[in-house]
């Protein structure tokens, strides 16, 4: 029989239990201050578990965690059952690898996320191309367990691993002209052969207003379920803004530009009547073609009501005070 997939039951696991030395050596560049952590920490688990841990238990076939990270602070973790790894990584949108929900998992093996570098551009102190390890090194990885709401009216609960976007932006010393952040996904016909079908205008472009980007909820994710991001989920670096529809979460980021003008996003280009710059989750503003009042949580049979700002109104509501959200959808 069909059975709605139930959420996991959390079981705490110590990092020493689940992190092999070879994995650790391979991933050490992701960890802040490799010296502080080092080999000893990896083998002996000498870090106090309340300071840094790999706490995601195996759920829905998730492989053993290979990242080390700080646990999510309570306000950044929903206690709702998490969507199993299997569902998170086999059911998603990444149009560079096909428009079907199962296509990215099938086709994204052609993406090569290592080595990776990101071009930092625009209104920052020191523009330039920087290797991903160097970009992340000064930051702690943190877990964030967020609701994820797709514009197609389905949703998940995902334990992401990443760094606060605001911390990174602060470190780049933005100039006074920096009003928006522009992001761009890799566009490479070799690694993404299906982009030749032009489902969208490539490269995939996204953007945030500066105050949105600085909100503590916004993160750049490098992993989920304690694992490095699988290719189909946007390896090796993607945006997560949980109060916005999923398509704002630009994947496999190669360019971050701080700029004065509001960037035009891919979906706005594709259809400005249906997709706006803000794309905040809002049950009161329907998509022109379908209702946004309810959503199907993956693993559930029937639909549940969609929450205003995806339930993050307390954190982000003030960003939009006085704005007409029907106009700025």
């Amino acid at each position: 029989m069909w059975s709605p997939k139930r959420g996991p039951i959390a079981r705490p696991i110590r990092s020493s239990e689940i992190t092999s030395e070879s994995h650790y050596l391979d991933r050490r560049t992701f960890l802040r201050g490799a010296t502080a952590l080092g080999l000893g920490a990896a083998v002996g688990g000498c870090l106090p578990s309340d300071e840094m841990e790999a706490a995601s238990p195996e759920v829905g076939g998730a492989p053993a965690p290979n990242l080390s990270f700080l646990p999510a602070p309570p306000r950044f973790r929903t206690e709702e059952p998490r969507t199993p790894w299997e569902d998170v990584t086999t059911y998603n949108n990444y149009y560079e690898f096909g428009t079907g929900k199962g296509d990215p998992a099938r086709n994204a093996h052609t993406l090569n996320p290592k080595p990776w570098s990101v071009s930092i551009e625009g209104e920052v102190e020191k523009p330039g191309v920087i290797g991903l390890e160097d970009l992340l090194r000064p930051h702690d990885l943190e877990e964030r367990i967020y609701r994820h709401r797709c514009v197609e009216a389905w949703s998940m609960v995902v334990p992401w691993i990443g760094i606060p976007l605001g911390d990174l932006i602060r470190r780049l010393n933005p100039t006074s002209k920096a009003k928006y952040v522009y992001f761009e996904t890799l566009y490479d016909e070799e690694q993404m052969p299906l982009t030749r079908r032009n489902a969208l205008p490539w490269p995939y472009r996204e953007g945030l207003r500066m105050d949105e980007a600085m909100n503590p909820l916004a993160i750049l994710a490098v992993g989920l379920y304690g694992q490095e991001l699988p290719n189909q989920s946007g390896a090796p670096l993607r945006l997560i803004v949980p109060w916005k529809y999923g398509f704002k979460g630009v994947k496999s980021i190669v360019r971050i530009r701080l700029q004065e003008r509001q960037p035009r996003t891919s979906w706005e280009n594709e259809n400005p009547y249906e997709y706006g710059f803000y794309a905040n989750v809002n049950p009161r503003v329907d998509h022109p073609r379908w209702s946004q009042k309810r959503e199907r949580r993956i693993g559930e049979w029937t639909k549940r009501p969609t929450l205003f700002m995806n339930g993050y109104e307390e954190e982000v509501g003030s960003l939009y005070a006085g704005m007409n959200l029907k106009k700025h959808f």
Partner: peptide, 13 residues
């Protein structure tokens, strides 16, 4: 597919 729960993450869809 339905009987074996093999319709993927979103069987209803």
């Amino acid at each position: 597919g339905a009987a074996m729960d093999a319709l993927g993450a979103n069987p209803v869809e």
